[in-house]
Amino acid sequence: MTDTRNLGSQTSLPTKKLKFHKPKIGTAIFLTVWSIYVLIPFVIMFNIATMTPHEALQPFAFGWDEGIQFKAFSELFVDLCMGFTIFGAFLNTLMYSIPPVFIGITVGTMAAYAQSKLTWHGRDFTFGYLMFCWLMPDCVGMGAGYMWFDFLGWTGTPLPFMIPGMFCGVAQVFFLKSFMSTIPNDLLAAAKVDGLGDVMVFWKIVFPLTLPAYWCQIIFAFIGAYNNYLGPLIYLEDPATYSLQLALRFFSVFNKDNKPAVMAGNILAVIPLLIVYLCFQDFILKGINMGSGLKL
């Protein structure tokens, strides 16, 4: 660590006025401009979604020359000869994402407890192996993974991207484990003296104390599953089973000239997560900082 005291060997303070509280106009301007940059796509999306298709194709389309209208949103419920509707795909996505996320993170919490608070043979080995896998870049999987799932007979169904999630990834275990290490071991020892077994200690004490991290991980895993594009793209075949992201992609490819409908689909895809975020923003932003003790 640099010793800063040696720098201050002068006997008198510098005569220059200390600039601790200089006005931060630059910061304010930058943050405002960048926030507008982040938010403006939503304004434009809404604008295009409420135009007439004809108007949206004109160059420099902005505002509502032909009047504001919401017809595009009703097209999301209609099958435009592609074998799927955007709303149906939305329901599919919920079906594909909610069960793996809840099962996966619950399993992960249990695993984190076993990793951090119990002693058993193979504990360090399994965790070491998982860490090793985490650091390995995985691009072999694209061909070989497909072959393996084909062998299991899972291709064409959502199982290949649902089932692996239920076993929980190492990143989540790592996060939950570091969160659990803040729970004092004496507390658990006291509970054991009172006659609770390992499983009941987890259920009655550790799990309730880990709930903030648990919900935080649920939210992030849900975002990941909801926005998953590669998995459905590779494994799904029947348009009726398409997930929302995949449906959006094909919808935009097949309906190039119906810009309002495509943008309405975008809005439907984006709004649910934004609502989740705005409701729990404080919790989520704090949750990130819970896990930022991550060091290599």
């Binding site: 407890y113 076993a114 504990r123 399994t126 998982l130 929980c168 190492v170 499983v199």
Partner: peptide
């Protein structure tokens, strides 16, 4: 118990 709880990942 360890493997049942922690072995899944």
């Amino acid at each position: 118990i360890g493997w049942l709880m922690g072995g899944w990942p």
